[in-house]
Write a protein that binds this DNA or RNA. Structure first.
Lengths: 212, 212
DNA sequence: TAGATTGTTAATCGATTAACAATC
DNA sequence: TAGATTGTTAATCGATTAACAATC
């Protein structure tokens, strides 16, 4: 209700709620309780209610939440109710995969431009988008009002690319390069590299299953 | 020191520490303090010391940590000091990118098998690995002692694939499908889909920059 | 030695969960 | 109405940070 500072944990759960609610819409289910969502998503119902209540009173006591209404609210909170242009830097295998992935981004989010440092790739297209040289980065971001960025360049280039993106006014970065990107500016950065995730997973391997 | 339960937050930081320590090795730096690591990685030095101290006394008072020794210790903690075979399910664009990414996985981790439901893909190779039909999943996992899995199949297939993997004895799953995978078994699952991450990022867009 | 830095305890901060009055 | 379920406060739990004795 009071727009206190929202924790990152809450923000990361909102897309999960949204996805399930969209699923319910497809199933023609119109009302849902925190208990039901909690059961399906394996979350505590009180947590779901508290998360949602931090943005407003979206439910009805004794009834639950109206699915359509809640979808609308969460999409608004996540700013998915407007067009968001995304730039992708690094047209290698991973960048290629993500841009073809464009279908997933639907919901008003789309990759609007792709950049790569390799001159050999210039002019070629990915998913119908021409690959541009890094020199054009700032201008394209400004003129096309691009606000989020995905980095899929090799590790040694990632921080520099991020610095350029931030200087150009990008407001959020999803970084897949295997290096932690930093900034002292007010830009949200998610580091999401595959290597680190797999290494963390390895921690949980069961010693007892070792063959030795 | 006492092997109390280690929080996931700690486990996620270990690969970050490791990566920076490997970088220091390359730079021929032999000793490092928690203060230095904290400065570079933007973390609280006390947190770094506490994280490491939960596994043993790796440092020297007044001196700091020996880089080589700490690398060895973290690699052991993360179980990266042994061969870990990984299976990839879903040979689409993303799966393709990640398997070519194989270079990154080095450190004794490698993609040992690739599966796909599409009969048209069978027999073709990615990065030198033949794509196999899902029917062979269980047997391959068992005979080749595969312990971790990466899921890059479409959302509707993801949960079923996960169930099969878990039934086959997989101990950890990195899921890129845009759906939260669940299990009641003792298997670690990281959900890492691009769509959710971008949607969370959108939350932080600056209202003031809206063009309206 | 004096300065630096760890490992660890205590303090703080924040997030999750439980409980329940309000109410549909 | 009785049962269900929210929004919210209080309790609990856990993670981060500060502080400092030990010691290299």
């Amino acid at each position: 209700m009071k727009q206190a500072k929202i924790s990152e944990a809450v923000v990361k759960r909102l897309p999960i709620y949204l996805r399930y609610l969209l699923h319910m819409q497809q199933m023609q289910i119109h009302t849902v309780s925190s208990q039901h969502i909690g059961k399906v998503l394996d979350l505590n119902p009180a947590q779901i209610r508290k998360d949602l209540a931090s943005f407003g009173e979206f439910g009805k006591k004794g009834i639950g939440y109206d699915v359509d209404y809640l979808v609308e609210k969460i999409r608004h909170i996540l700013k998915l109710d407007r067009e968001i242009a995304v730039v992708l830097v690094g047209a290698g295998h991973l960048g290629h995969a993500i841009s073809n992935y464009n279908a997933y981004l639907k919901d008003n989010m789309r990759i609007a431009a792709i950049f790569d440092a390799d001159p050999a790739k210039l002019g070629t297209q990915i998913a119908g988008i021409a690959i541009q040289p890094l020199e054009e980065l700032s201008e394209t971001i400004a003129t096309r009002n691009i606000r989020l960025a995905i980095i899929t360049v090799p590790a040694p280039a990632a921080q520099k690319v991020a610095d350029q993106l931030i200087a150009a006014g990008i407001e959020g970065i999803l970084n897949f390069a295997p290096i932690s990107i930093r900034t002292d500016r007010d830009v949200k950065i998610y580091n999401a590299d595959v290597t680190s995730s797999l290494q963390s997973l390895a921690f949980y391997l069961n010693e007892k299953k070792e063959i030795t």
